[in-house]
Design a protein around this nucleic acid. Structure first.
Lengths: 225, 225
DNA sequence: CTTACCATCGAACGCTTGTTCGAACCCCAT
DNA sequence: ATGGGGTTCGAACAAGCGTTCGATGGTAAG
């Protein structure tokens, strides 16, 4: 399986794409494990057995969706960042690209975010290699911004995953017909994150003293036993 | 089913708690739909049929975990916020409570976050009512902070769900043996969010001009067809 | 010791699942 | 028209699923 789809698509490629899109829509709606191949066959208007001409197993189907999704996002991102020096600008572009892609491919991205552990073995490793690559890119940008602007008081790892948390959580709430459009969403999140990361922490923190620090129970377990 | 467990637990209650904790651990590890009642029976050291003395269906089992989790988190939060005037301080406490509870009950919270749509019908409605209650609380705090500090340029809904995204994403990466402890994690995220929300957006944004705004393709679909 | 109730279990039911197989179909080059 | 390879399909399989039922064990009160 190659990273990129041929521009000129054969009948076979077109049908595979149709299957992947249909599957992603159902996976997004009811979850990978609750979706049966029969569900996919119905929506794709094919027979059960006919589908297996295009993939070897349900798990490989999930892999094809995830891998191609990651491939595209990373490729687009690399193109976008090329030749830009300021890591803050690069990060801004990464966020824009991520959210733009997410919103315009909500089904596939929900499957990528939510079904990350529904895949196992070698296929899991392959997807994870791409993920690590992408996360490392973002983390190195954030680290570099921190270095140049002498950011203190925020852990780079925490910052990176907080950013991905913000961005990847949108499948839980974002409604394109009701919420801001992608451009405004990107701007909001870039501002939230960059201002938060760079922002003068000390400026606000002194006013947050509660006079009862360390008041939290260490709730070791939900149900004490 | 009541919201709170009796302080004095009968033999029955203790065993129910044991089942809930065991189930949550397996659900967290392999997902709700990939977990069979037989898996739970094995780990809980009970027979398959014996489990059904404690719940009526697999779905109700999930509900019990989620409902009790939400119940505890909201109750703790209310107690903590009581009598405090500054919404920024209240939000800080909400974040601390949320993360403290999350880290100390990672299994249950992962099930709460990740299996939100694995439940349906009336049980889903019940859990969702609690969720809305909790989200509304956070959103109203954020809105009030925005009003008092005259925050501009960030949508309150986007800010709220970005915060929950940051916080709830941690089950995907947080490793208590390798990462910061809960106190430091809370401090980091509070700083990231509050500085981000309050922070002078204009201060940094002018330096982020790329000279090619609107350059992003509207990637309508992953696989063009 | 007997009664009654709470708790537990082995075994089975009906159903859905992912996957396979061999036969049939379609369509284009000869 | 005919051959053949690329597609499609109906039917079946074994395995696993959630759930039920009737019977059994344990235990505390009468």
């Amino acid at each position: 399986m190659t990273n990129t789809m041929p521009a000129e698509q054969s009948r076979y490629d077109q049908k595979l794409v149709h299957i992947l899109k249909t599957s992603a829509a159902i996976f997004a709606e009811k979850g990978y494990h609750s979706t049966s191949i029969r569900d996919i066959a119905r929506d794709a208007k094919m027979s059960l057995a006919g589908l297996y001409y295009y993939f070897d197993s349900k798990e490989e189907l999930l892999y094809l969706i995830q891998d191609y999704c990651f491939g595209t996002i990373i490729e687009e991102c690399r193109k976008l960042l090329e030749g830009i020096d300021d890591p803050a600008v690069q990060l801004k572009l990464l966020i824009e690209n991520h959210l733009n892609f997410f919103v315009n491919n909500m089904n596939e991205m929900k499957v990528l975010s939510h079904e990350a552990n529904s895949i196992s073995g070698d296929l899991f490793k392959k997807v994870n290699a791409r993920k690590r690559q992408y996360v490392d890119l973002a983390m190195s940008l954030i680290a570099e911004i921190g270095r140049r602007r002498r950011v203190e008081g925020v852990d780079v790892r925490v910052a990176t995953f907080s950013l991905f948390g913000m961005m990847n959580w949108i499948y839980n709430w974002y409604n394109p017909r009701k919420d801001l459009d992608v451009a405004a969403l990107s701007q909001n999140m870039t501002r939230l994150f960059l201002s938060g990361f760079l922002g003068d922490g000390a400026k606000h923190e002194h006013s947050l003293e509660t006079g009862r620090e360390g008041h939290l129970d260490r709730t070791v377990s939900v149900w004490q036993q």
